[in-house]
Design a protein around this nucleic acid. Sequence first.
DNA 1: TTCCCTGCAAAAGTTTTGCACTACT
DNA 2: AGTAGTGCAAAACTTTTGCAGGGAA
Lengths: 168, 168
Amino acid sequence: MPRWAATSEETPVRTVVKRPSEAKAERWLALFHERLRERGLKSTGQRDDIARVFFETRRHISAEELYAEVKKINPHVGYATIYRTLRLLKECELLHERHFDETQARYEVADEPHHDHFICERCGKIIEFENRDLERTQRQVARELGATLSRRRVELYGLCSDCKRSPQ
Amino acid sequence: MPRWAATSEETPVRTVVKRPSEAKAERWLALFHERLRERGLKSTGQRDDIARVFFETRRHISAEELYAEVKKINPHVGYATIYRTLRLLKECELLHERHFDETQARYEVADEPHHDHFICERCGKIIEFENRDLERTQRQVARELGATLSRRRVELYGLCSDCKRSPQ
DNA sequence: TTCCCTGCAAAAGTTTTGCACTACT
DNA sequence: AGTAGTGCAAAACTTTTGCAGGGAA
């Protein structure tokens, strides 16, 4: 058996589950202000409210959910502003838009580094993970296709460990 | 240099570009009839027209595009029937629904084996490919997460080889 | 003061549904 | 004949846009 083939037992765990970043909302907000200024755009109360809720959220939020959350702290805000601010955050490269299996989009903080998603089909939980092997293989695929890779998306669907354990 | 590191030159190409399957539309249609019969549902002219166009299509078609194509051979058909038939084909496991970067869904024949997609950001071309390494790594990730994998989705975005070559 | 931004409402785009009628089996 | 399927139109749902008024720089 060649030496490299023995690695399946020695290989350390390569999949790192991403923890939601703690209490950095204010830093992201500052970054948002900076990007707005660079573009000659304005900071406003509504944009701050929306962006703060978005940055504080620990999950992949939909526009509808974001609207509901923002309404709690600023009942005056409209849907249009939610969507316009989401688009703005995307243009400022602070937000990623995702289309999992649904019609509606979900949004997450454009936190580096790149990561992928595992979506539990029973409880709906979304686990973010990083795996270098996966990324390396993807680059290899692009190379073999003669293509240039600019971004990639991996979504795994199945039963998470909690749902596997619990009966039914 | 350790021996395993030399594999980058020896490794055979692992990425196989999937060719659209030729002239199997009638076989798929027969399969559709069979699944309908099993479920006590009816075969109709509209369902056949829609399914035939869908099975003959070599690309990832949207409901809108499918509607336009079907209209050409059967101008009487309605949007509702398009969507109802798409849902039916999905329930019969003959169709996969995809949400690439858009709001609207695209549909493809549920052809085995599993394959993934490269989407060219300039010309919009969608290349289907298979890569065993990628699949193996994905199963490994699920194992490390303690999860059961039921399905997976990989989408790579970038410039295809044609667009890389052509100027502008 | 100058634009940019906001809310509202309406529109646009995608998908689903109610209902009376049609047509498979 | 009985039941599932169809077309149309309307509704539902998500996202975008026009416009008149409001507010940040």
